[in-house]
Design a protein around this nucleic acid. Structure first.
Lengths: 305, 305
DNA sequence: GAAGAGGCATGCGGGAATAGGATGGCATGG
DNA sequence: CCATGCCATCCTATTCCCGCATGCCTCTTC
């Protein structure tokens, strides 16, 4: 039972005649006759009554017709479903990201994306870097926005953000009274940092090691909001991207200062599977992000006012 | 988008590899590879991620898979539906018949048929002879049981019953006191007969004409039960098949007598479209009827007791 | 790190399936 | 009774598709 045979069958059923159906399908009448004969033999039943003038469906033909119609609809629907996905008129795109990214970057990106592509569902999943990479490789997500560096031969990395990390304390801490703070001063401070193993933490650790500052880490967590709460309540200082506190600087909840001498940066980039096939949704997300990445550029204010 | 392609696609999706799918389908791997490539080109999208080790569905592939599965189910169902129809494990058979036939013959036949083929629906339609023939030609019914003669080149006629028509009166009428009644005696009687144009009526009319009896028809109807009611209430006599009153002879509601001299008969037969294709349901109905037609043979009792 | 193995893609040649054209049979309608 | 319309069938040409061999890539193993 072939798609082409079912098409011929449906056309004949509609036209009530082999010849008319053949004309509509731009094939010869003999082809129609032969294919329908084959179909009838395969099903072991007559599908049409041959009356001298045209043909009429048998009961079995009627059964087949309803099935054939449903099948045709099914096929047509899946084709248009796929083609709409290509045109971004619908679809689903799953993006993974670390906690910070999911809190401060993806919401804005997704809002802008959805404004343009209303029927495309976007799903955001968060997890550790290893976790997100795993999902990427399992094709559970198409795209991830992660803290670099990430080195993997099967992944494509597109760096997009370079944020300077600053020292943050509670509002009144003397450590951040000046515009810059000396690295050594950090050694005397209890520090609340990102969890070990995270790329952001690695940047900090390398910096402290390089500067020869003994670290006094009293707490680590993956969640930047928890870090901020801890810091705000005076438990210690932290080193995080400025973007994480940008909105709260004016309120005086936090004090901050750049590092004197060796500045440190956290780099963020898109991560996706290396493949010659890139869904349009993916490239559109990249494009939209590119058009708004100045918002996230992590420009530090010229002064601390 | 071909049935075979969809089959390959589903198999590959299940196996997660072209080679394994090819083995399961007993075709070469290259065939699978090529057909899926064609399918992907037709849909304009990648259906599988080619990872070095096997393949994985893309989102579009997942869409297609659900559709392909539904289509496969649809096809399988219509095939088994048709094959069950052939084996009379289900199906529908429409039978047409005149009023008398529908009242006295078809119920018994259908009961016996259904006892054997529980899942086959039988539908009985009634109407005038012309009406039933029309439905037969429109393929609304497959089979009809009608009063003969019927002459039509496109129809096949199978005579099955020959019923003697008898004179019937109300219980106490002197006309039917004897075992036989003379034709001329009918001329003095008001008659209630089948409607003009019916084959049964034709038989009666011809008889009366042949015998030179002036007919005094006071009422005609297509419905034998109406005739019986009229006759029972003493309005007149009638000439109907014995079978129509067989069950009511003992109650004394009716009196009856055979015609003296020229007996008249009503012949009944199956009517169906001439065709080399005969559904099994039709031949089974004919067979079942044949096995029980002695019940309808219209054997008159030896005596009027 | 080089070689081997497993798996998909692709060019080539042969064969099966299918289309088209012509013709015949059948029924219909004037 | 002939003309017409329609389906079935035969024959031939072609298209399509398969299998084979091979290439390329990835992953594994020594």
């Amino acid at each position: 039972m072939d798609t082409r045979q079912l098409d011929m069958f449906r056309t004949v059923a509609e036209e009530g005649a082999f010849t008319a159906a053949a004309q509509r399908l731009h094939i010869s009448q003999s082809a129609v006759s032969r294919q329908l004969k084959l179909l009838e033999e395969e099903l072991g039943t007559l599908l049409f009554h041959r009356t001298g003038r045209g043909v009429t469906l048998t009961r079995e033909g009627e059964m087949l017709l309803t099935a054939a119609n449903r099948i045709a609809v099914e096929m047509q629907e899946v084709v248009s479903q796929i083609s709409e996905t290509k045109e971004l008129r619908r679809g689903l795109l799953s993006i993974g990201g670390g906690m910070t990214v999911c809190l401060y970057i993806l919401p804005k990106l997704l809002r802008k994306f959805r404004a343009q592509y209303k029927e495309v569902d976007l799903r955001v999943t968060t997890g550790t870097t290893a976790n997100v990479l795993q999902m990427l490789r399992n094709r559970e997500i198409e795209l991830a926005l992660l803290t670099l560096p990430i080195i993997a031969a099967d992944l494509e990395i597109i760096p997009v953000l370079k944020e300077e990390m600053v020292v943050v304390t509670a509002g009144k801490n003397p450590l951040t009274r000046e515009r810059t703070v000396d690295a050594r001063a950090l050694g005397r401070q209890p520090l609340i940092l990102f969890e070990s193993g995270s790329n952001t933490r690695k940047v900090v650790d390398e910096f402290l090691l390089r500067e020869g500052v003994p670290s006094n880490v009293i707490m680590e967590t993956e969640n930047v909001e928890i870090i901020k709460t801890m810091v705000a309540s005076g438990l210690g200082a932290t080193i995080i991207p400025f973007a994480a506190i940008a909105h709260e600087v004016k309120s005086g909840r936090f004090g901050w200062a750049r590092l004197r001498g060796g500045r440190i940066y956290r780099e963020t980039g898109w991560v996706l599977m290396k493949s010659d096939y890139q869904p349009r949704a993916v490239s559109e997300v990249l494009r939209v992000f590119d058009s708004m990445k100045h918002q996230f550029a992590g420009q530090l204010p010229a002064s601390k006012g």
